[in-house]
Simulated scan of single mutants.
Amino acid sequence: MLIGYARVSTLDQTPDLQIDALRQVGCEKLFTDKVSGMVTERPGLQRVKEVLRPGDTLVVWRLDRLGRSLRDLIDWMNYLEGEGVALRSLQESIDTSTPTGKLVFHLFGALAEFERNLIKERTMAGLTAARARGRQGGRPKSLSDDKRQLVIDLYQQKKLTVKKICEMMNISKPTLYSYVRS
């Protein structure tokens, strides 16, 4: 079964163009959202997940209607593959029910992985260079050593609640527990 999904970013926009194209290719069920692609909770897309069955094809007008980034699209593709569902994009002429469509999509995935590895490599090189110049990474400590010791002492004395200590020192519970553990 062909199941169509259309999305527009704002309430002012209309999905009519997408819906017409999805109907024209034979989509039996259509779901829409009027929400930015950055929003992860999309009711229409959630309903799509609920009705998809193995052997179905999810049809979108353009790939950017489904996911905002290549990572989102790859996550969707992995999900759909796991469910035995194909993906078809009308504008990009991608159909993962065909060997060529799968190849194109996996090339996108390989390029995304390559990009992630390059970013990781550059980040690690930058951190190494910064450390060589004496810079330390990470967030600055929220309390001085004396105040950290005071937090530990107050915690161990058990005279004040964790909540009260955190309020007095203006720190979070996880920060307090990290001081106590170290």
Rank of each mutant, 00 (worst) to 15 (best):
R88F: 04
G37R: 03
P99T: 12
Q13G: 09
K159A: 08
T96S: 06
Q156S: 07
T57W: 07
A110T: 12
N170I: 10
E115Y: 03
A112G: 11
P54M: 10
T57S: 04
V180M: 01
Q24V: 12
G4P: 00
L107Y: 09
V162P: 02
N117I: 12
R181W: 14
E115G: 06
L17F: 10
G26D: 04
S69D: 09
M169E: 13
S36A: 07
T98E: 11
R47W: 03
D75F: 11
A21S: 14
L66I: 01
R53D: 04
R53E: 14
E41P: 08
E121V: 12
L103W: 13
A129R: 01
G126N: 01
G55L: 04
T96V: 05
S182Y: 07
L118A: 15
Q91F: 15
V48H: 00
S93M: 14
R116V: 02
R131P: 04
L107W: 13
D95K: 06
I94K: 09
M38I: 12
L11E: 12
T161D: 01
S178G: 10
K120G: 14
D16G: 07
P140N: 10
R68Y: 06
Q91D: 10
L111D: 03
Q13Y: 06
L2H: 06
V151M: 05
V180Q: 09
K120I: 13
E121H: 10
W61M: 11
L45A: 11
R23P: 07
T161K: 07
R7H: 04
K147V: 09
F108D: 07
K163A: 08
T123K: 04
L52G: 00
R62S: 07
F31D: 00
L70T: 15
T14N: 15
K102D: 12
D33E: 05
E92A: 01
V48R: 00
V25W: 06
F31W: 02
R7Y: 02
K141W: 14
L87S: 00
L111K: 05
T32G: 08
E121W: 05
L66R: 01
A110C: 08
V8Q: 09
T175A: 09
T100E: 14
L73W: 02
V151P: 03
R71D: 13
T123F: 02
L143S: 09
K147I: 07
G67Y: 08
L143V: 12
L111G: 13
I74P: 01
I3F: 04
G44F: 05
A132S: 08
E81M: 12
L103Y: 09
G138H: 11
E81Y: 15
L30I: 11
L87T: 03
M169I: 03
G26K: 07
H106N: 13
G137S: 08
G55W: 07
I3Q: 01
C27Y: 00
L80S: 01
G82A: 01
I171E: 05
L70C: 15
G109P: 14
K29L: 00
T98F: 06
C27A: 10
T100S: 15
G126T: 02
W76R: 11
D64C: 04
T96I: 08
V162I: 08
A129L: 02
K141Y: 09
L87P: 01
A129I: 00
R71P: 05
Y79E: 12
Y155W: 14
L80A: 03
S182T: 13
L90E: 06
G82I: 08
D75A: 13
Q157Y: 04
K173W: 02
D16S: 13
E41S: 11
G84R: 10
R148L: 14
